[in-house]
Design a protein around this nucleic acid. Structure first.
Lengths: 235, 235
DNA sequence: CAAAAGCAAGAGCACTGCTCTCGTTGTTGG
DNA sequence: CCAACAACGAGAGCAGTGCTCTTGCTTTTG
């Protein structure tokens, strides 16, 4: 499957990785707007035209970085979920652990976060390659709530009439086994989570929220309630 | 105060507005990344160097557009608040009217929305000139809750210990007259609102949320509850 | 072992932001 | 009133960008 056939293919993998690494360095230093293919090539000691053997355009390079970033934050969320689920943590604690992992990831890589949850830079619609990796964090949040549903049950208000069909579609498509009432609040919580993180990362909380950690914990705890998670002792 | 002194000053105002209008057109057509000072000048029939008499750099032009956009969405929120407060609408209805006005504004001007609530494009920290206009939507949300507090009172859970001091600072700085318990949920709701809208505008809800209006209404109604607004009949 | 395919490099095109200079035009103080 | 001054528009020019094409070279493959 992933057997490397020869020196040429091996070199291609290494050069591709080197280009992405250097691009990430420039991303962290100057932001996505100033990321330049020529500068990447210059730093790598190769001609700018050679980079086009690996990425057909600057936007394709950015798309590759976007996919990697989605995978990275998704992996962070999944790791936090695994760690929390392996221990004695209750469902609320798992919810908090996952959301905090996403926030920590964002705080550590603000420019990569901006790349995936800020304005879509290249075109206006996200490339098809990004849709899979983009859903990983959402799937982890679903898993936390699904676990809680199986063991302790969920506390949820009834659905509004004009959302019933939508909610049924949502659970059959993304969260089989979950009651329809859980879907809209869960997806809303997913979006709200990134609202909280985006405002913090993009500076909207400057001089507004100072106790960031405590504020975030309280906000996601309240969100856990809205998705039906029963309050438990271990936070 | 705003008396126009002569033909020169009058012309300056008109040209400045024309440049911003043309820039907004390009923003809507191609996005902030491809906004070009030269193209703006070309479209206006002037030399590119002449534009620099009006905006010292491309980033300054973008900053002007950002300030205008903040003012525009703030004005939309304020207008919705005025209209709702003038009628017989209850506090929940006002909350929904304001949030819906913001969402409608964003749906009508996705690129301008991306300019202010997407990744900060120019540098990494927002210019000082943007902080005032940026707070207008938040102030409207505060006003809705403050009105409800005065007339019907708020239903709020007690504060966590490590958020008490922060909450007191928040109300004294931004919402005098509001109980401290209201501040953290209110600011969180402000951020969550833009999380919901951003996910819709930036395509994250593609194939996930179909009944957008109903979904948004339910989400902001739930948010109204978390900021202490009493549920009332007229929605 | 020769043909084919992948690769790096350089030149070049059209574009960008931005600066500088040089005439021109509107404003204003003596 | 008109001369000095400041604002202005246009053009040339610099350095940088994304991207393409051509030219040789190297690795893979039939």
């Amino acid at each position: 499957m992933s057997t490397v056939r020869g020196a040429r293919e091996r070199a291609r993998i290494e050069v591709t990785a080197a280009i992405k690494d250097e691009a990430r360095k420039q991303l962290a230093a100057e932001g996505a707007a100033k990321l330049s293919l020529r500068a990447v090539a210059r730093e790598l000691g190769m001609a700018s035209s050679a980079v086009y053997r690996y990425f057909p355009s600057r936007d394709e390079l950015l798309t590759a970085l976007i996919v990697d970033a989605y995978d990275s934050v998704g992996e962070a969320a999944e790791a936090a979920h695994r760690a929390a689920a392996a221990g004695t943590a209750g469902h609320l604690a798992r919810w908090i652990a996952v959301t905090r992992a996403v926030r920590d990831w964002a705080l550590a890589r603000p420019h990569e976060y901006a790349l995936i949850y800020g304005s879509p830079v290249p075109g206006y619609t996200a490339p098809q390659a990004t849709v899979g990796p983009a859903s990983r964090v959402g799937l982890v949040l679903i898993a936390v709530v699904a676990d809680a549903h199986r063991t302790d049950g969920l506390a949820l208000p009834p659905l509004a009439d004009d959302l019933r069909a939508e909610a049924v579609r949502m659970v059959t498509e993304f969260a089989p086994g979950l009651p329809p009432e859980a879907a809209p609040p869960l997806i809303a919580a997913w979006a709200k989570l990134f609202g909280l993180i985006s405002f913090e990362i993009f500076g909207q909380f400057h001089r507004v929220v100072e106790a960031r950690e405590a504020f975030f914990r309280e906000a996601v705890t309240e969100m856990a309630r809205t998705v039906g998670l029963p309050a438990d002792e271990k936070g």
